[in-house]
């Protein structure tokens, strides 16, 4: 059976490589020629990466059992705190000289 190669393409210099699809080919030489024509013949790609499917190590199980959301934006609800802080600032400001 031929090998499957995953093909990644970059649209322009500086852009990220994106998965484009795959091809089946007898070996790397064939894969190169085939990927060139299937994913770049209209000049739509500035670079291609060919990766034998077997070489792809996939990780798709991400566990967060203990809700460690301090690492994410939704881990911070600033709205309430900000409201509180503003109220506090508003009440004290009146007493301070030099504040509007």
């Amino acid at each position: 059976m031929p090998s499957v190669y995953e093909v990644f393409r970059r649209e322009r210099p500086g852009a990220a490589m994106q998965h484009a699809g795959s091809i089946a080919a007898p070996d790397e030489r064939f894969a190169e020629i085939y990927a060139r024509e299937q994913y770049g013949r209209r000049g739509e790609s500035d670079a291609l990466w060919l990766v034998p499917r077997d070489a792809v190590q996939e990780i798709d199980d991400f566990v967060d059992e203990f809700d460690l959301k301090y690492r994410r934006v939704d881990g911070y609800s600033l709205k309430e705190r900000l409201k509180e802080a503003r109220e506090l600032a508003g009440s004290s400001r009146r007493d301070e000289p030099g504040t509007p």
Partner: peptide, 8 residues
């Protein structure tokens, strides 16, 4: 795959 390449 060969069809596409040979057509080019």
């Amino acid at each position: 795959e060969e069809d596409v390449a040979f057509s080019s």
